[in-house]
C-alpha cells in the first residue's frame, strides 16, 4: 500500500530524512519510534503533502501512485489521513460543516453520492460515541476552545468519519492522560480492518500497550536503524534509545 524507498528530505538546506525505507501493507499497524529530532514528524508531514520540504531523492508510492506529486487534498481523497500532533484551531469554521464538506469531497472523488445533512448527522453521532466526545463540540469552530485531549479525540473522530485506507497518527498520544489515551486507542482499534493500515508515530511505548503494532521501527537521524515486532518497543522502554544509537554510530 505504501512503499517508501531511500527517501531524502531537507528543510531549509538541512537534511532531515536521509534515505528512509518503509513498506506498509493492508491490515498492518506500524509504529515508528525514535528520539526527538529524528525526523518522525517530518515523515508524517511529507507523506501528507505539507509545503516547505525539499525532496532530495528517493520515492514514496501509495497504491502505486507517486505520492510526492499529489496535492495534499488529492492524497486525502485517495484515502490518506494524517492525525496532527498539534491540531490547528480554525476560528469561524464550524466543526460539523467542515467535516461534512471534507467527507463529501472524498465521496465525490470516489464517485459516491454526497451525504445530506441528516445522513451526515447520523454518521457523525455514531462515530462520536467511538471517541466519547461531547456533542456540543460539533457546534464549535474547528478545535477552538478544545482542550488538548478534545483536540486529539476530534482528530480520531475525523478519521472515523473519513474512514481512510492509510492513517498516519503523529504523536497522537502526546499530552493525553491515560483515560483519553485509552479512548483514542480504542477508536483506532475499532476502525482497524484487514484492508486499512496505520502508521503510528510515537515517542513513548505507552500507546503501544493499547494499539498493538505488527512492526516497530526505530527512526534515528533520518533513517530507520532497526525494525522488529512489538517486543522491540518493550525493549526500548526498558533500555532507552542509546544502545541502538551507539550501534548505529559505530556502524558509520
Amino acid at each position: 500500500m505504501l512503499s517508501i524507498k531511500n527517501l531524502q528530505v531537507s528543510v531549509e538546506d538541512k537534511p532531515i530524512l536521509r534515505g528512509l525505507n518503509l513498506e506498509v501493507n493492508p491490515g498492518e499497524i506500524h509504529a515508528i519510534m525514535g528520539p526527538n529530532g529524528s525526523g518522525k514528524s517530518t515523515l508524517a508531514h511529507v507523506l501528507a503533502g505539507r509545503e516547505g520540504y525539499r525532496i532530495d531523492g528517493g520515492s514514496a508510492y501509495y497504491k502505486g501512485i507517486n505520492l510526492l506529486e499529489l496535492a495534499p487534498e488529492i492524497r486525502a481523497r485517495e484515502g490518506m489521513f494524517l492525525a496532527f500532533q498539534y491540531p490547528i484551531e480554525i476560528p469561524g469554521v464550524n466543526n460539523t460543516s467542515f467535516l461534512k464538506k471534507a467527507l463529501n469531497e472524498i465521496r465525490k472523488h470516489r464517485g459516491e453520492e454526497e451525504l445530506d445533512a441528516i445522513d451526515f448527522l447520523d454518521l457523525i453521532k455514531k462515530q462520536m460515541k467511538l471517541v466519547e466526545m461531547k456533542e456540543d463540540l460539533l457546534k464549535r469552530p474547528v478545535n477552538q476552545g478544545f482542550s488538548g485531549g478534545e483536540k486529539k479525540r476530534n482528530e480520531i473522530l475525523q478519521m472515523a468519519v473519513l474512514n481512510p485506507l492509510l492513517a498516519i497518527l503523529d504523536e497522537t498520544d502526546s499530552g493525553l492522560d491515560i483515560d483519553a489515551l485509552r479512548i483514542v486507542a480504542g477508536g483506532v482499534n475499532k476502525l482497524r480492518t484487514k484492508d486499512n493500515a496505520f502508521v503510528v508515530i510515537t515517542h513513548y511505548q505507552r500507546l503501544l500497550d493499547y494499539i498493538v503494532p505488527d512492526f516497530v521501527h526505530v527512526l534515528s537521524n533520518g533513517q530507520i536503524i532497526k525494525s522488529g515486532n512489538k517486543d522491540l518497543a518493550l525493549e526500548l522502554e526498558e533500555r532507552g534509545y542509546d544502545w541502538l544509537l551507539d550501534k548505529a554510530e559505530t556502524r558509520d
Partner: peptide, 9 residues
C-alpha cells in the same frame, strides 16, 4: 494545510 489534508481543495 489542515483543511487540504482533509480533502478540501
Amino acid at each position: 494545510f489542515y483543511l487540504q489534508s482533509r480533502g478540501i481543495e
